[in-house]
C-alpha cells in the first residue's frame, strides 16, 4: 500500500509521457527510414522529406505567409483594443471581451459554416487567401488581446499615463511611448501564440480552403488520407520541426511575461 501511494504518481506520469512521446518518435523515425516496414535496417534517408517538399512546398509556404499576415492583423487590431479595454474596465468592456472570445468556446466548424454561408457566394473573396486569414484572425485574436491586457492590468497603467499626460504627451504619444513599450512582454507572448496557433489551425481552415489554397495542416490531412506512411510521417516531421521551436518560444515568452507580472 505504501509502495503504491509512493510510486503510483510517478508511474502515471511516465505512462502519460510514453503515450504522448512514442507515436511522435514513431512518426519522426518513419519519416527518415527508407522503408518503414523493414525497419531501421533499411537505412536512414532524407528522400521522403525531399518528396514532401516537392509535393507540399506551396502549402508550407502558404501557412508561413498566413501566420505572418495573421500576426500583422492581430497586432494592428488586438494591441490597440487591449489598451482600450484595459483603460475602460466595465460591463461594456467585459461583454465585448466575452464576445470576441466566442471563437474559443464555439467549435471551429460552426464558425467556418457561419463564414461560408455569409461570404461563400462572393467568389473573389471566397477563393482568396484572405478568406482563410479571416478565420485565423478570428481564432487567434482573443489570445493576443488577453496576453496584452494581462500585462497592462498588472502595470499601473493609469498612473503611468497620467504621468506622461502631466508632462504634456497627447493620447497617441502616450500609447506609442508608454503603453506599447511596457506591454512588450505581453505582445511578444501573444505574437508567438498567434503564429503557433495559426500554423497549426485545421478545424476552420479545412472548411474555408479551396483546392488551390491548401495550408500545411490541410496538406497533412491530405497526405494521411492518400500518401504512403513514410511521406505522411516525413511531412509530420517537417511540421514538428516548425512547430516545436515555436511552442517552446511561446512557453518561454508566456512564463517571462508572467514573471514580470508578479
Amino acid at each position: 500500500m505504501k509502495l503504491l501511494t509512493r510510486y503510483m504518481p510517478l508511474a502515471v506520469t511516465l505512462l502519460a509521457c510514453a503515450f504522448l512521446l512514442v507515436p511522435t518518435l514513431q512518426s519522426v523515425l518513419a519519416g527518415i527510414t527508407a522503408n518503414y516496414f523493414r525497419g531501421l535496417s533499411s537505412g536512414l534517408t532524407l528522400k521522403w522529406v525531399g518528396e514532401v517538399w516537392g509535393l507540399y512546398a506551396d502549402s508550407i509556404l502558404l501557412s508561413i505567409w498566413l501566420a505572418l499576415a495573421c500576426l500583422a492583423v492581430t497586432l494592428l487590431i488586438g494591441v490597440p483594443a487591449a489598451y482600450a479595454l484595459a483603460r475602460a474596465p466595465g460591463r461594456l468592456s467585459r461583454v465585448l471581451e466575452e464576445f470576441i472570445s466566442l471563437p474559443l468556446a464555439i467549435p471551429g466548424l460552426a464558425l467556418a459554416l457561419a463564414l461560408l454561408q455569409l461570404y461563400g457566394a462572393q467568389q473573389g473573396f471566397r477563393a482568396h487567401w484572405s478568406f482563410i486569414l479571416v478565420g485565423h484572425v478570428l481564432y487567434t485574436l482573443p489570445f493576443m488581446v488577453r496576453a496584452v491586457q494581462a500585462v497592462l492590468a498588472a502595470i499601473d497603467l493609469k498612473t503611468l499615463e497620467e504621468g506622461a499626460a502631466s508632462l504634456g504627451a497627447p493620447p497617441w504619444r502616450r500609447f506609442v511611448d508608454i503603453v506599447v513599450p511596457n506591454a512588450l512582454p505581453g505582445i511578444l507572448a501573444g505574437s508567438l501564440t498567434v503564429v503557433t496557433l495559426s500554423i497549426g489551425e485545421f478545424n476552420l481552415t479545412w472548411m474555408l480552403h479551396t483546392p488551390l489554397l491548401k495550408t500545411l495542416p490541410v496538406g497533412l490531412a491530405d497526405s494521411y488520407a492518400s500518401m504512403r506512411l513514410e511521406i505522411a510521417s516525413a511531412y509530420t516531421l517537417v511540421f514538428f520541426v516548425m512547430i516545436v521551436p515555436l511552442l517552446m518560444a511561446m512557453q518561454w515568452a508566456t512564463a517571462r511575461a508572467q514573471r514580470i507580472l508578479s
Binding site: A16, C17, L20, T196, F202, A221, T236, L247, M250
Partner: peptide, 12 residues
Amino acid sequence: ILTLPLAFPGVV
C-alpha cells in the same frame, strides 16, 4: 514531453 502536443492540430 507532456506539453508537447499543445500545438498539434487534431489531424496530427
